[in-house]
Simulated scan of single mutants.
Amino acid sequence: MATLNDVFMGQLPQTLPLFPLTGALLLPRGTMPLNIFEPRYLEMLDYARAHQGVIGMIQPHVSPIEATEGDDNLGTATRGRPLYKTGCVGMITEQAQGPDNSVLIVLTGLSRFDVVKEVTVDTSFRLAEVDYSRFSGDCMGGHDDKRLDRSRLMSVLEVFLEQSGLRADWKGLDDAGDEELLNVVAMVSPLSPAEKQMVIEAPVLEERFSLLMKIMELTIAGQHYHDQTTPPVH
């Protein structure tokens, strides 16, 4: 299996195995732990290991998903169910055997992608041709110079999390660079699936910051941010 540097230095694959999961938000240089236990996703994991060790995380378009035959209680999507257009490819950077033949992995985000079309294949999981061109800056490294209005972000975040009954590691957040800070805030905050999709589709870090601030401030005020996500891919 390729290393993280191999993938960054080389070309990202144009065909990805997809893991559609409601509410799952992976961003470039962010990390996501996953417990893989369904047979179709264990098959997907085997495929990923043989193809640069990468998986495309993407959300089903309908959220929350109504239970249908073939869906599980995590909100994963069967073949043919619409997906959002934009996801993030992650590389398997940690893995360990879990209980009952499950596999515990950690994905590290590499780059966002747009789904071009799904590939018709004889597998139990979904594959898609993808395009990275809208997000060419994702593989150019993080932003650690602390240019954002962090004091405003921290102030609003404290109220937002308190209102949601959550706590934060404030020392760890204060030490983080801008991109790492926004990744953590976006990935662990109790945002709706549609709000998380808007975050992943924000083109640059500054727009991600502005969007997160608007979402949190409106939530604190008891309002909701209007869904401005891209149409689904069928």
Rank of each mutant, 00 (worst) to 15 (best):
L34S: 06
P39R: 05
R40V: 08
Y41H: 08
L42S: 10
E43Q: 13
M44D: 08
Y47K: 04
A50V: 02
H51R: 04
Q52A: 04
I55Q: 00
I55V: 11
M57G: 05
Q59S: 14
H61F: 14
I65T: 03
A67Q: 13
T68G: 09
E69A: 15
D72S: 08
A77Q: 09
R79G: 14
R79D: 10
G80E: 02
G80W: 14
G80V: 08
P82W: 02
L83N: 07
L83H: 03
G87N: 03
C88H: 05
G90L: 05
M91L: 08
I92F: 08
E94A: 12
A96W: 04
A96S: 09
P99Q: 15
L104V: 00
V106I: 14
L107K: 02
L107N: 01
S111H: 07
F113N: 04
K117E: 15
K117D: 10
E118D: 09
T123V: 05
S124E: 04
F125K: 06
F125N: 09
V130A: 00
D131V: 02
Y132E: 03
S136F: 10
G137S: 13
D138M: 13
G141S: 06
G142D: 13
G142V: 11
G142Y: 03
G142C: 11
H143Y: 14
D145K: 15
R147Q: 02
D149S: 05
R152P: 02
L153C: 10
L153V: 13
M154G: 10
M154H: 09
S155P: 07
S155Q: 15
L161D: 00
L161M: 13
Q163I: 13
